[in-house]
Design a protein around this nucleic acid. Structure first.
Lengths: 213, 213
DNA sequence: TAGGTTTTTGAACGATTGGTAGAATTTTAG
DNA sequence: CTAAAATTCTACCAATCGTTCAAAAACCTA
């Protein structure tokens, strides 16, 4: 079940392979890939060490234990997610454009950090103690911010009034998060093109109002 | 890590507890719940046996091994998903209404069989051999059917022409599948109400065309 | 090159894993 | 009541799990 993912990588300019230095970041990145592919519980530290071209014991110099690796993945996702979203939501942009930016932001995270995002939404159960509760709370706060954009749009009459903001948020989030399941870079559409299609779909709808190209 | 989920349940009419008969179905249902909550790799057969109020050995009379349990979960999902979808897609209903029915069908599966659906989209990696490939293929065929509805809508001019049917399908699927992550029966909205909201969102869009209540 | 510091190794640990075998028990049918 | 069939239990296996740690290796500075 061990899978080679990273190898002594990177060339030093002379074309010869040199061993990449092991660091917390390297470990976390490789772990995210393995956890996303096989699940946290089904990934052993031996798998992870093998993927990094290292022995199991070496990992323990950089991280306290397996759960800490998981914690670091969660923190990484929140680090790249929260602040940009807050900036978008708190800006003076009109609601429709704001929602499009939110969708673009969230799909970007889902596409660029696909393994981390997968782990984020999949492996929450394996967090314990106060950290688990902290994540729950910050995840809720994140959703709440998106909800606010929709509420704002309804309040100013730009969005339909008969749509529950919470349900709409869940729908949008689901749409975006699903990206990590199927999106592969280099496909027909770029992440931002997909985000634009999603925005058009969610805001304008699929239905034709009048014949448009 | 063992979790009690089922207990010697059901009363025999005289109020006294009697032990529920162990069957493949019982095992699969309990396994789906545990796999969904903790992951396939992190769920031991001891956990499963404990949840059923039984010992590990008993399980092996009803199923060949751990992977067979997983296979049965996958088959169950496909059994309840495929045929109803095919009926909807092959019917003579107009595309817009057809898509609404598709969304309702898929959210219904995601809501009613939430654990199984979670496992279905999460644990494909742990299937091996030809069965794994069969699932991949049937999953693709399922998505292809939804795509056809959208293509049909575009062809007859009911849906906008500038939306990629594949991306739209992934968006809709993501929206529906995400249900299993947050939907709990008995909430503010029923599954069919949520499906209706999703349909309205995807087809009509969030934007207000004219002031409507 | 020497000496000290930072990393990595490799073996060992107790616990637990999926899986097996067969005895013991319960259920069913005659 | 009996015997066969269906079901569950106990005990055990080899493999693997996360984790620890002393020793070795690699690295850096002087």
């Amino acid at each position: 079940m061990a899978e080679k993912v990273l190898e002594k990588n990177a060339s030093n300019g002379n074309g010869e392979k040199i061993k990449a230095r092991l660091s917390q970041q390297t470990i976390v990145a490789a772990a995210a890939t393995l956890f996303a592919r096989n699940g946290f519980g089904a990934t052993s530290l031996d798998d992870l060490a093998t993927a990094l071209g290292v022995t199991k014991g070496a990992l323990y110099y950089h991280v306290k234990n397996k759960e800490e690796i998981l914690r670091l993945i969660f923190l990484q996702v929140l680090t790249v997610s929260e602040e940009p979203l807050r900036r978008i939501v708190e800006s003076a942009t009109p609601p429709a454009e704001k929602l499009a930016q939110v969708i673009n932001h969230h799909t970007a995270v889902a596409a660029d950090r696909s393994p981390q995002m997968t782990v984020f939404y999949r492996e929450h159960v394996h967090l314990t103690g106060p950290f688990s509760r902290e994540i729950t709370q910050r995840k809720k706060a994140y959703e709440r911010l998106i909800e606010q954009v929709i509420e704002e749009g309804i309040a100013v009459g730009v969005f339909k009034a008969n749509l529950d903001p919470k349900i709409a948020t869940f729908g949008i989030l689901g749409m975006c998060n699903w990206l990590s399941q199927w999106y592969k870079p280099g496909g027909t559409y770029s992440q931002s093109q997909i985000a634009a299609l999603f925005s058009q779909m969610v805001e304008g709808g699929l239905l034709n109002v009048r014949g448009n190209s």
